[in-house]
Nucleic acid binder design. Structure first.
Length: 114
RNA sequence: CGAGUCGGCCGGACGGUCGCGGCAGUCGCAAGGCUGUCGAGGAAAGUCCGGGCUCCACAGGGCAGGGUGGUCGGUAACACCGACCCGGGGUGACCCGCGGGACAGUGCCACAGAGAGAAGACCGCUCGGGCUUCGGUCCGAGCAAGGGUGAAACGGUGGGGUAAGAGCCCACCAGCGCCCGGGGUGACCCGGGCGGCUCGGCAAACCCCACCCGGAGCAAGGUCAAGAGGGAGUCCUCCGGGACUCCUGCGCAGGCGCUCGAGGGCGGCCCGUCCGAUGCCUGCGGGUAGACCGCACGAGGCCACCGGCAACGGUGGUCCCAGAUGGAUGACCGUCGGCACCGCUUCGGCGGUGACCACAGAACCCGGCUUAUAGGUCGACUCGUCCC
C-alpha cells in the first residue's frame, strides 16, 4: 500500500481517471493521468489495476507490489493534485522490475506536460 | 551394502538501501512524527463435509427430500480419527475395501453361447427301429458324464449304481440353514451336533431397514450522527456559493387493509401454529456500500506429569502468535547455498555460464477431507546378502 494520503480509494475515482484522463499505452502497462486545471496543494494520488489476465493470485500480488514500489519513486514527477491509474497488461506478470520501470518511465514522459 | 514399507519435520540463509500494515508507548490543537514490537501456508488453495458465532416469527406432527452405512471407542460435530473384526493382496514390514439387506417385492446380466434362473442340449453318450456302397446315415426314446461358449453354466473328490447317466445312493470336504457349548462390551471367532442333499451375481438399478438433518449466512448482524433531510463524488466560481451524478429508515403515482385483518413466517406440500398496522402490495427511476463494532484469547500454541494399545482426555506450568478493506505482510542489490549445462581433471574435485530456484497469497473463526508441491532431512520397521 501507498501511504493513505496518496491512495485512490473508490471505484468511482478509478473509472473517472481511466475515462477522462490522458492515457499512454506501453507493451506491459497503460498509464492514465488526470491533471487538475489549476495547481493545488492536494497530494498526488495513485491506484493500480492488475486483473486476472496478468496471472494467478501469486503473480498478481507480486506484480502489483513491484509496480507500487516503482510508482512511489516517480510520484514527484507528476503535478501535485493529479491522479494516476496504472493498469498492468497480460505480459506484466512475467516482466522484471527493470522492464516494468522502463515502460513506466516512457509512459509518464508522454503523459506529463513539461 | 542393496531392495522396500510406514511416519514426522523443513521447504532457501545472511547482509545492505528504500518502503507498508496492526498494536503499545510518547510528542503534537491537528495532520502526522518518533521509539518498541508483531506481520502468510502446509496446503493460506478446491469450497467437498462438520461445527462455533449471528439473525429469523424457537423451528411441532405427517409426507416428500438429502445424508450416513462392519463393530467398539474418540470428539463440539463429522462423510474425520483410532483400535479391532471380516474379505482381498504381499515372503515380510505393511497395503487395499462405495464393508447393512438379494427368502419383502420389481428389475437387469452386453458379446459369445443350445441355455443367464425353479434355465438348457450344439458336439456328444446309450438303447430300439429303418436304410446301407458296412465307412456311416435317418427316425424315435432316454441322458447330461466328457468337450465347447462365457466374468459367471448351480457343488468337489472317490466309490456304488446304470443301457448310458445323474445327490439317484454312500463317505469325506466345501457351502447354506438351525441348535448346543465356550470366548469377546461388540462386529465376530473356536468346537460339536442335526437337516433338505445344493440354493448365481448386481442394491454406485429401483427399493427395504436403522440412524441423522430447521433455514440463511460476517455483504450474518449490531451501534452512532442527521430528522427530511443527510452522506459521497465531480465540475464551475465573482470564494458568498451554485450546478450535476450517485446512495439511503428518502420520493412520486395507484391499489389493499387495520381484529369481520391486507400481507407474511415456520426450507417444499398438508395439518397445525405464530406474527401482523403512519402497515403491506404494484409501478416509475435508481444497485458494489458513511464511520465504527463484529474482528482475533481461541474446541489456542508449547512443556511436563497422570489415565488409555491408540485416537484422545485430565491436571499443572508457560506464552500472546497477521488482521488488510483498490486490500499491508514487500521491492531492489550483493554474498552464500542448491540445480542444469559446458570445459578441464591426478576422478578427490576445480573453473565458467544461466531474466534457473517447488506448489502456492489470509479476508469471521475453528476441526477434517481432497488436490498441487523442486529439493532436503530425521526416525521406526521388513526382506535379501556379506562380515564378526
Amino acid at each position: 500500500m501507498l501511504p493513505p494520503a496518496h491512495r485512490l480509494r473508490s471505484s468511482r475515482e478509478f473509472s473517472e481517471v481511466v475515462r477522462r484522463g490522458r492515457r499512454a499505452g506501453r507493451p506491459l502497462l497503460v498509464v492514465s493521468v488526470l491533471i487538475p486545471t489549476e495547481p493545488s496543494g492536494a497530494p498526488t494520488r495513485a491506484g493500480l489495476v492488475v486483473g486476472k489476465a496478468v496471472g494467478g493470485s501469486v503473480v498478481r500480488s507480486r506484480t502489483s507490489r513491484r509496480l507500487r514500489h516503482l510508482l512511489r519513486d516517480r510520484l514527484d514527477r507528476l503535478p501535485t493534485g493529479s491522479r494516476v491509474v496504472v493498469r498492468a497488461l497480460p505480459g506484466a506478470g512475467a516482466a522484471s522490475s527493470a522492464a516494468l520501470g522502463d515502460d513506466l518511465d516512457r509512459a509518464l514522459d508522454r503523459v506529463v506536460p513539461r
